[in-house]
Design a protein around this nucleic acid. Structure first.
Lengths: 214, 214
DNA sequence: GCATCCCTTATTGTATACAATTATGCATCG
DNA sequence: CGATGCATAATTGTATACAATAAGGGATGC
């Protein structure tokens, strides 16, 4: 993270995720250069990355704006994730190493701990959740799949989603992870894929239902 | 295409596709700057794009190399395309406008013309083929899906694949397109998805079988 | 002869100045 | 009063010089 373009990426990203950046509002390279403390050259690289992750968008004349995710956009994103992570889970079920499985169980322990508290620790839950999904993606040994998923699994939405979770939602999510591990242990690719599918689809509905009613 | 970074992208890309660039060989930003006739700044942007399309790769110390696609890489690519374009075809079957359908038939006419000649015109076939798939991708109205597919549908592989095609393979490909149009006219999403799936999977095997035996 | 260290060279990364493009506000004309 | 064109400002795009980092090669010691 020492390179300036990485610094810029991290700074801009966390600025976007902080919620202080109004969706649809314009940003300039100069502003972002100020915010991140590096010159425009690395900022431009960072912006390109964030564009490909769809946290930033450009208008017809190349000006930069904070992306505004509609409900349909989020639906679309979860649909693609369901398809691709379902595939990843399927492959992982066949290729998972014992070490991966151990790591998966460790991370899932973290996740359970975060949930089973008087006041659930959402940040810790999210960290463990991301790590869990990442292990599976990596275990699928498909570099292109991993790259594509990295683009889709962008956190502003995941974050918005998780904030809507009730304690019961969080617990159900943890149970899904338990079941995924069971499917992996059984080496049952179809099972793993199905669980991953319903896991992600439910996540979308949890979000959509709460968001709609709020 | 007037912007320098687009010029650089096109120039480098066509250089990579020309076959003069040995897979695994190193390239420097300076060289690419010479080749494309613009300064390193836009070249760097172009390189980033080509990296994300996996036509270029970097080693651990950020040096740039021509990507070397293994058989497994190509298998993986076609598998992902099958999944994603199958999904696109499914959606397109429900959302395709009459204008889209007309365009699809026009392009498919081109494709048939290219194939039904004494000596099939592979370049024209490829152009029509790309246009055909692109119409379907666009018709699915899923910007993220389109973006992801744009990354995967990279031509060096498609090119290598198409060169292996026998006349009969080309004709079968054209027949697949006919059947896709039929599925669209029937508004049958499942049919469209299935045809797209076998279409792409066969493309892989045509490639794999010939390549392996050559 | 071979390994190791250092100096040199090659290559990528960053900052900055300037060029090109696009937006904005104002004046003028109908 | 509204539209149109023009001058100006704001913003992105490009080139270039310099900085940082990594590779290569040769001398030196063993």
């Amino acid at each position: 993270m020492s390179r300036a373009s990485d610094t810029a990426y991290a700074a801009i990203r966390s600025y976007l995720l902080s919620g202080n950046a109004a969706p649809g509002s314009q940003l300039t390279e100069d502003q972002l250069s100020e915010v991140s403390g590096v010159s425009r050259t690395p900022v431009r690289e960072a912006v390109r990355r964030l564009e490909s992750e769809m946290l930033l968008v450009r208008n017809e004349s190349k000006r930069i704006f904070v992306a505004d995710w509609s409900r349909d956009d989020i639906d679309e994103m979860f649909t693609l994730r369901q398809m691709l992570e379902g595939h990843a889970a399927q492959r992982a079920a066949r290729m998972l190493s014992p070490a991966d499985l151990g790591e998966l169980e460790r991370v899932n322990g973290e996740l359970h701990d975060a949930v089973n508290q008087a006041e659930p620790d959402v940040v810790r839950f999210l960290d463990a959740n991301r790590a869990f999904h990442e292990i599976i993606t990596q275990a699928a040994r498909s570099p292109r799949l991993a790259q594509v998923l990295a683009m889709l699994v962008e956190q502003p939405v995941v974050l918005r989603t998780a904030r809507q979770y009730s304690v019961e939602d969080l617990k159900q999510s943890a149970r899904d992870h338990d079941e995924l591990i069971a499917a992996f242990k059984a080496g049952d690719a179809g099972w793993a894929k199905a669980v991953m599918g319903s896991h992600l689809r439910r996540a979308f509905h949890t979000f959509a239902d709460t968001e709609g009613g709020a």
